[in-house]
Design a protein around this nucleic acid. Structure first.
Lengths: 202, 202
DNA sequence: GCCCGGCTTATACCAATGTATAAGTTCGCA
DNA sequence: TGCGAACTTATACATTGGTATAAGCCGGGC
C-alpha cells in the first residue's frame, strides 16, 4: 500500500532520460518531479510526504555524490537511488557507504528501478513516522524549563528526590514540584516512560 | 591503538595472493591467517579476539558473497572487506547492501586495504565490547525465574505494585519480594537502570 | 522421606513519592 | 510600575515502595 502522495524526484541532466523515467514511474501510478541539476533540486521546496530521489551520478555542476553529501550534511535523509551510465566500483561503493539505497548501472531493467523505488518509499515512510515521533518528543522536551530539564536528568539517572535536591541545591519539596511538571509536560505516565523518552532524546 | 591479538583472516584461492597479502599485513604488525576456500574458513575455530575478513569474491566452491550470507545467517558478524579482480557494480552493491565494510577492485593500493583493515578492526572491537555487555546483561536476565521475568515486565511498563499483583494474580507483598530479587539479580541500582536494561534486552 | 528452589504470604516499620493548597522571590518585559 | 513566568518553599496527608524477619506450600531430585 503506497501512501497517496508519495513522490519520486529525478535529477538527471538528460531530458530524454528524465522523460523516459517519468513515463515509467507514472505508468505505475507514481507522482514524479524532475530536475536537470542538483542546485535545482536543492532549491525546490518539497512537500512533507514520503519521497525518494533517483539521482544520476554525473551531473553538470554539483555531482550526484556531492549532492548526496550535501543532503546528508543538511540532515535531509531522503533515500537515494543512484543511476549512472558511466559508473565504476569505487563510485558505487562510495555511494553505498554514504547511505544510498541502490546503485543501478544503465541500462538497467525497469523493474529493478521500480523495485528499488518501492523499497525506498517504504523506507522513507517508516523513517518519517519515526522522525515525527521523535520531533513530538523533542517538542515536549523543549517546553521544559532549564531547571526542569536538570531535574529530569537526575530522575532518569535513578536519583532519589533528596539526592536530586542536593545536586541542584534546592529542597526536596521543590524537586517534587519540578517532577510533577516534567511528567505532565512530557506526557509520561510513569518514570519508566520518562526513562524511555530520555533514551530516545539521546 | 590496535588490540594485541587482533587478527586478519584472508580467504583467497590464489596462493601468491595469499602470500602477498600476508606479507603486506605482517609488515605493519598484523596477525594473519589465510584460507584457500570458504569451507576452510567456516571450519576454523576462531579465537575470541578482534578480527576482520579479507575475502575474494570469486572462490572455488562457496563464493565470497555466499560465504558472507552464510556468516550473517549464522550470526557471525565479522567485518568483511571484499577484494576481487573480476568485480562489477551489481556485485559490489550487493556486497555493500549485505553489510560489507569495503569492496576493493584489484589492483588496489596497499594503503587502501590497510586503511580498510584498520577501520574494520576498530569496528569489530567496538562491536565485541557492545556484544559482551549485551551478553552479560542477558546472562543476568537468564538467572531470573519465570515469575520474576513477568514481574520485571510489569515494572518496566510502569505498573504500580498493586497493578502488577493484580495482573499476576498475587498479593502486593509477593510482588515486592520479586522486585527485590529482580533488582539484585540484574544488578540494577534503580528502576531507571532496569528500564534501560529491558530496552537493551529488546 | 527429606531437602531445596521457586513461589507465596504475612507483620511491622520506615523511606520515598505524590497530591492539594498556598504563597514568597526574582527577573524581564510591557 | 505592574504582570507573568520561573523558581522556590511550606504544611499536611495519602499512597506507594523498600526492608527485615518469618514462614507455609509444592514439586522435583537425592
Amino acid at each position: 500500500m503506497r501512501p497517496p502522495a508519495a513522490t519520486v524526484f529525478v535529477v538527471d541532466d538528460d531530458e530524454s532520460v528524465r522523460e523516459a523515467l517519468s513515463s515509467l514511474m507514472r505508468s505505475v501510478g507514481l507522482r514524479v518531479k524532475t530536475f536537470s541539476c542538483g542546485a535545482e533540486f536543492t532549491r525546490y521546496e518539497r512537500e512533507d510526504v514520503p519521497a525518494c530521489l533517483v539521482l544520476d551520478v554525473r551531473l553538470p555542476g554539483v555531482s550526484g555524490l556531492e549532492l548526496q553529501r550535501q543532503l546528508t550534511e543538511a540532515g535531509t535523509d531522503i533515500p537515494i537511488i543512484f543511476v549512472t551510465a558511466h559508473g565504476d566500483i569505487p563510485m558505487s561503493v562510495r555511494a553505498m557507504k554514504a547511505g544510498a539505497m541502490e546503485f543501478l548501472s544503465k541500462p538497467f531493467r525497469d523493474q529493478d528501478l521500480l523495485d528499488a523505488i518501492e523499497k525506498a518509499l517504504e523506507h522513507d515512510e517508516c523513517a518519517r513516522i519515526a522522525h515525527a515521533q521523535a520531533a513530538g518528543l523533542r517538542a515536549r522536551y523543549e517546553t521544559l524549563t532549564l531547571r526542569e530539564r536538570e531535574a529530569m536528568a537526575c530522575v532518569v539517572r535513578g536519583r532519589l528526590n533528596k539526592q536530586t535536591a542536593d545536586e541542584l541545591g534546592i529542597t526536596e519539596i521543590t524537586v517534587k514540584v519540578h517532577r510533577r511538571h516534567i511528567m505532565a509536560k512530557m506526557q509520561a505516565k510513569s518514570v519508566a516512560d520518562l526513562v524511555r523518552m530520555a533514551e530516545k532524546l539521546g
